Amino acid sequence: MLVVIADTEIRFRDYPFVGASVHPRGVLALAEIRDADPSATPPEIRTVTEETLFVAAGDGPALEKFCHRNAIPVRRRPDIWADLLEPFLDTSFDLAHQRATEAQLLAAGFPAAEIVEIRRRVERAMVSYNFDSMLWEWVHLGLFDLLSAANGSLARWTARKSLGDAAELYRWAMRIAHRTNE
């Protein structure tokens, strides 16, 4: 993922996620940026059209300077996808923790049946992404990981295909990621 953070725009040179407004190349103007989180892993830019774009971790400091220089709000938001993808981490959680995660999702407006359906839809790809690949992530899987599973090489081809059309999955994942944003 190659990104050039210029004075008043961000140029994406090799954005990997099919369906993104900047895939595979694109320019993001100041007027298109709602806020950003340079400290997220990886750093995030959220647009006025409710899209989350990512930059490489090494670009976090440059993104922070860009935000400061251009008066873009820096805002840390909860990653709803981290809660949704928690069952696919290489760790186990006790029942109290599982209930707390479910309570967070319910409070964010996700009915229990929808939580089950979302997890069912992504299960095959996320298991392949985290376990078949031997990534064995045990701390955090989020929106970036879901998109990586759909578009990258870590998940098996058949598992990626279980997600359906990559561009449609991208739009669906963004709608979910931004449902709880103000």
Rank of each mutant, 00 (worst) to 15 (best):
V122M: 04
H68R: 15
P111V: 04
P42H: 07
A31V: 06
L89P: 10
T52P: 00
G142L: 11
R171Q: 13
D90G: 09
G109Y: 10
E168Y: 09
F144G: 13
S153P: 01
L163R: 06
F144S: 14
R25C: 03
A177Q: 07
A107P: 01
R75D: 11
P38F: 02
L135G: 00
V74A: 04
A125R: 11
A108C: 05
Y15R: 06
F66A: 13
N151V: 05
N181E: 13
A100I: 01
F66G: 06
E114R: 13
L28Q: 06
S148I: 00
V27H: 04
A125F: 11
L53N: 06
S128C: 03
G109Q: 08
E117A: 12
F17E: 01
E9F: 02
D14L: 12
G58C: 00
D90R: 12
R13K: 15
E117V: 01
S39T: 14
G164H: 06
A96P: 05
I118N: 00
L105C: 02
D37V: 08
T91I: 14
A100C: 02
V122K: 07
A149H: 01
A103L: 12
L163F: 10
A31C: 03
V3C: 08
P87Q: 02
L135M: 05
N130K: 07
A62E: 15
A107E: 14
E50F: 11
G152K: 07
P43T: 05
E64S: 15
W136G: 00
S162K: 06
V116G: 00
A103V: 01
E32G: 02
R99M: 11
N70L: 05
Q104K: 15
P42Q: 09
H68M: 11
L85E: 02
E168L: 15
M174E: 09
L84Q: 11
R25F: 08
I10C: 05
T91M: 13
P43S: 03
F144H: 15
V22M: 03
A149Q: 05
Q104W: 00
F110T: 00
T91W: 15
E102Q: 15
A57N: 02
E32W: 03
E123Q: 12
I72C: 03
L135E: 01
W136I: 00
L147Q: 05
K161W: 00
P73G: 10
P38M: 10
E102C: 12
N181L: 14
V27I: 14
A103S: 11
A150W: 03
L146H: 11
T101D: 00
R99V: 13
L53V: 11
A177E: 09
V74Q: 13
E168F: 14
N151P: 03
R120G: 10
V4P: 00
I10T: 01
V27N: 01
T41Q: 15
M134N: 12
F66M: 11
P61D: 14
I176V: 13
I45T: 08
T91R: 15
S92Q: 09
L163G: 02
A82G: 15
G19F: 06
F54G: 03
A20W: 05
S39R: 15
A167K: 02
S133D: 06
I10P: 02
A40K: 10
M134W: 11
T47R: 04
E168K: 14
